[in-house]
């Protein structure tokens, strides 16, 4: 399933990212293209991070663009693999195979437990 991102109306200034509440549910979408090496690596890396840091608080959708390239349009995907965090807002994305765990946690704005 896919949900549209809920974009908060800005105040005119660039809002500072807010720390998400731990109880908030993370809605994550991972765009892959069939079973390319980087796609497989990204799925594996993301599962590992989620189990470690977001167990019970996340919902993950894996979208295979090789089957339906048109789905790339929704989140304006340019490169594969790409991870999009739809919730909590604001929407953020991490491009790549997610092999650098530190960068992924920063990108998702998750504090280490």
């Amino acid at each position: 399933m896919m949900e549209n991102a809920n974009v908060e109306p800005g105040s005119g200034a660039v809002p500072l990212p807010e720390e998400p509440e731990l109880h908030d549910t993370f809605l994550l979408k991972l765009y892959v293209a069939g079973q390319t090496p980087k796609s497989m690596a990204a799925i594996e890396n993301l599962n590992k991070i989620c189990k470690e840091h977001l167990l019970g608080f996340y919902k993950l959708e894996v979208i295979d663009l090789a089957r339906n390239p048109a789905l790339a349009r929704t989140d304006k995907i340019l490169a594969i693999p790409t991870l999009v965090r739809n919730l909590p807002t604001p929407i953020s994305r991490i491009i790549g195979d997610l092999s650098d765990e530190e960068q992924v946690l920063i990108g998702l704005n998750i504090k280490k437990i």
């Binding site: 790339a72 340019l78 490169a79 594969i80």
Partner: peptide
């Protein structure tokens, strides 16, 4: 960096 292997 070579961390993607497909483009749209």
């Amino acid at each position: 960096s070579g961390s993607v292997d497909a483009l749209v």
